[in-house]
Structure formats: C-alpha cells, structure tokens
C-alpha cells in the first residue's frame, strides 16, 4: 500500500512517498519560501493546501494532482475594514461535502465547492464571547475540527486559549464545552472560555468520546464535551500539542513537552507516548527515536496516522526531522532529512 505524506514546513511543502513504508522518496520544496500550514485531499479528488507568509499573508491553493497549484481568488477573508486579520489558515477538513478552514485570527470559514469560494460562519466568528478571546503563544487560532458521523448538525472546533465549542444546529450557534478543564486564563465576564485546547482526537465509533491535549493537561470527554476529566496517567509531562488516534486499533499518541515555559522534549529525548486503553494509561512508544540531545518538539498539526493495518504514525519536529513508525509506535525510523521547521503533516494511504 503506497503512502503519501504532505509535510508542510516554515519554508515550503514536501511530498514524502513510499510504496512499502520502508523506502521513502522526498520531493520539494513547493511553495518555496512560504509556510505550508495545512493540507487536505478532497473526497472527490484533488488537493487543497493552505500557505502563509509573514510578509504576504495567507492563501489557499488547489491542485488536481499535487503538482500544479492555483490560488483561489475567493479565499477566506474578513470584511474590508474589519479589525480582525486573516493571518494563517491552521486546519482544513472536509465533512459531508463541505470543506472547513480554521483560521487565525480565530474563525471558521466553509466552502461548498471544493475550496474555490469561502463563506464565514457568523455563529462562531461573531460569538458573544468574542470580546474575551485572548491569543495564546501561538496566536488566536482555530486549529481543530471534529464531526459527528451520526448527526450532521453536530460538530466541534478548538480555538487556542479560548476552548472547545460545539454546534448542534449545523453551525448556526456554538456553545463553549470546557467544563472540567483548568483555565489557561480566566475571563472576568465569560467564565466558559479561557481554556487553551492544543489538540483534539475522536473515537471513530463513538463521536462523543473525545480526547483533548490541553495546555493544562490531557483530558477525555465521554459525553461530547459536556464534561472533561484528566486522563494522563503515565505521561512524563502533561503539556504537549498533538493527540492523534489510530482508527483501527484505537491507540492514542501524544508527544509530551516539558512545561509551557520551556516546550522542550522531556529530558532531551524525543518521546512518543501511547495509550492502548482509551487514555486510561500512557506508556512510552519511542524505540528508535533520538534518545539524547533531541530538543525539537512536535507541533499540533505535525503528527498523523495512516489508519492502515498495522497503523503507521508520522511526525515532524520543529528541528525539521521526520519520523515514521509502521507498527503503531512499536519502533521508529528517522528519515534522513533535515527540513525546515515542520508545521504540518498529512498522510494519505
């Protein structure tokens, strides 16, 4: 089974491909000099890529084949004269024919035509708590979406330093869902926000079962976000960014970092932690990863699973190294590349 990775870095995108998950080919960079911040393969074919430049801002590009790219004219944008700025597109997801973009300054935009044109989601973008939204260290960004395959009107989004929001009416209204999560900063007026979600994962069988790597720890909800409880037994640090779930095994993966003021791999070792029991306990699954003098972390969008059997796990670091496991974290291969700072990893089998 061939596997194709889109590796988005601070200086361009790279395709990393393999027919057997042993021998890998690297192509790139494309969008040289631009940050590649998110990628999506459309269900109907073709690719969507989000890019950004500190100078020239963000944009969305479409490609039929991953080779030729064309920028869309009618991309996500706040209205002219708005005090918000579209600084970066953090995530792209597709659900039931609609493409979703989570952006910074925090907001959600949707496309019903495969990414060619985009519309804002007012229920979220103009949320009554918006005045209390404060940016975290990574900026005020909407970076995660989850969907309920049993209910087309229900979905979740995660906004850094604000929290998780859920809609039950197709996006018309959104309700903060952060009860049980420790505050990153407490808002004087809006007590239901100020929770710094870093990453989200969801059980494919039960959409109400959600895993949350938060600034304040690793959490789990069994009721669609109505309540949260810590599930971090065995983790060497409760701080980190990505949490991903392999659909076949239901194994969870995270990369703990030492405290928010350092954000470094614990003990200078690049370690992946795995839970094989739905988050009840975590153990290191790091065989083959650099054990000493490894200080590159893994950002929230830079870890992915391929959902093959056995499942492949992929992650890129802020030091530009790329790591592959073909056996659900049982062992790791360090690919012989040093890329720019890795922001995003998508994988398609």
């Amino acid at each position: 089974m061939s596997v194709r990775l889109l590796v988005g870095t601070a200086k361009g995108g790279f395709w990393v491909t393999s027919d057997d998950r042993r021998q890998w080919e690297v192509e790139g960079p494309f969008f040289k000099g631009w940050k590649v911040t998110a990628g999506l393969r459309l269900e109907g074919g073709g690719f969507v890529a989000a890019v950004a430049s500190e100078i020239y801002g963000p944009a969305i590009f479409l490609s039929p084949d991953g080779e030729s790219w064309e920028q869309v004219e009618d991309g996500p944008a706040y209205p002219d004269g708005d005090d918000r700025r579209l600084r970066q597109i953090w995530t792209l997801r597709e659900n039931r024919g609609t493409v979703y973009a989570g952006v910074q300054d925090a907001g959600v935009f949707t496309s019903g035509d495969g990414g060619r044109s985009w519309q804002p989601v007012p229920g979220l973008n103009e949320h009554e708590t918006r005045g209390g939204w404060m940016p975290g260290a990574g900026g005020l960004c909407c970076h995660a979406f989850l969907f309920d395959h049993n209910d087309p009107d229900r979905m979740w989004c995660g906004i850094s330093a604000v929290g998780v929001f859920r809609t039950d009416d197709g996006g018309a209204t959104w309700i903060p869902k952060n009860r049980g999560v420790y505050w990153a900063h407490e808002d004087e007026e809006f007590k239901e926000i100020g929770h710094c979600v870093h990453g989200l994962a969801q059980d494919p069988d039960d959409p109400r079962r959600i895993y949350r790597q938060d600034h304040s720890g690793m959490y789990r909800s069994r009721d669609g976000g109505e309540s949260w409880a810590r599930n971090q037994h065995g983790l060497p640090s409760t701080f980190g960014f990505p949490v991903v779930l392999d659909a076949a095994s239901r194994f969870l993966f995270s990369v703990p970092l030492e405290a928010d003021q350092y954000r470094l791999p614990v003990g200078g070792a690049l370690q992946v932690f795995r839970s094989m029991d739905g988050g009840d306990s975590w153990d290191s699954a790091s065989a083959g990863l650099p054990e000493v003098h490894a200080y590159g972390g893994v950002l929230r969008g830079a870890m992915a699973v391929d959902n093959l059997e056995p499942g492949g796990v992929y992650m890129g670091t802020t030091s530009g190294t790329l790591h592959v496991s073909r056996d659900l974290g049982g062992s790791w291969t360090n690919l012989p590349v040093i890329l720019p700072r890795i922001l995003h990893v998508s994988v398609w089998a």
């Binding site: 020239y56 801002g57 944009a59 920028q71 004219e73 944008a77 002219d80 708005d82």
Partner: peptide, 19 residues
Amino acid sequence: EPRLKPHLFNEASEFRRHV
C-alpha cells in the same frame, strides 16, 4: 490579478506591514 490583493494589501486596503 485579484489573487494579488490579499498579499499586497491588508483588510484596511493599506499595504501589508512589510510590503
């Protein structure tokens, strides 16, 4: 060339900060 607009100008229709 409408695709240039968001890269050269901000939402206030001024040059982007480093353009």
